[in-house]
Computed example of a mutant assay.
Amino acid sequence: MIKLTRLAVQGDTTLLLTFSDGTAAPWSAGALIARDTVMTRPLADPAYFARAFIEGGALAWPNGFELSADALHQRLEASGALVRDAA
C-alpha cells in the first residue's frame, strides 16, 4: 500500500508529495478547490492550504478532509508526473 511520507508546500495550491515507493511529484489542488464544496472551500485560503499534514499515510487538513495516498499516486502516475528519487 502506497503512503505519503513527506509533503512540502510549493505555492498557494500546490504541494510536493513524496510517496513510500520513493516517487515524488508536485500536486495541484486547483481543480479540487474549484469544486467549492464545504470540505474543499477552506483550501482556497493559502494559509489554510499550507496547514496540510500527513495522517496515517494520507494527505489531510484540520477540517477532516483527507485524500488517499493511493488515489493521489495513481492520478500522478497516469499523468506522467511521478519521478523516482535518485537517492
Rank of each mutant, 00 (worst) to 15 (best):
I2G: 05
R6Q: 09
V9M: 07
Q10Y: 00
Q10A: 04
D12P: 01
T13E: 14
L17H: 01
T18A: 14
F19W: 06
F19E: 05
S20G: 11
G22C: 12
G22I: 11
G22H: 10
T23D: 00
A24P: 00
A25N: 12
P26F: 00
W27Q: 15
A29S: 14
A31Q: 06
A34K: 15
R35I: 12
R35E: 15
R35N: 15
T37D: 04
V38D: 09
V38Y: 03
M39L: 14
M39F: 06
R41A: 15
R41N: 09
P42N: 13
P42D: 11
L43A: 05
A44T: 03
P46T: 06
F49Y: 02
A50K: 02
A50R: 05
F53N: 06
F53E: 04
A58M: 13
L59P: 05
L59V: 11
P62K: 01
G64L: 02
G64D: 09
E66W: 00
L67F: 11
L67Y: 11
L67K: 10
S68P: 10
S68F: 12
S68H: 07
D70N: 03
D70Y: 11
D70T: 12
L72Q: 08
L72R: 11
H73W: 15
Q74E: 13
R75D: 14
R75H: 08
L76F: 07
A78N: 10
S79K: 07
G80E: 03
A81G: 07
L82C: 06
V83F: 07
V83W: 08
A86R: 15
A86H: 12
A86I: 14
A86D: 11
A87Q: 14
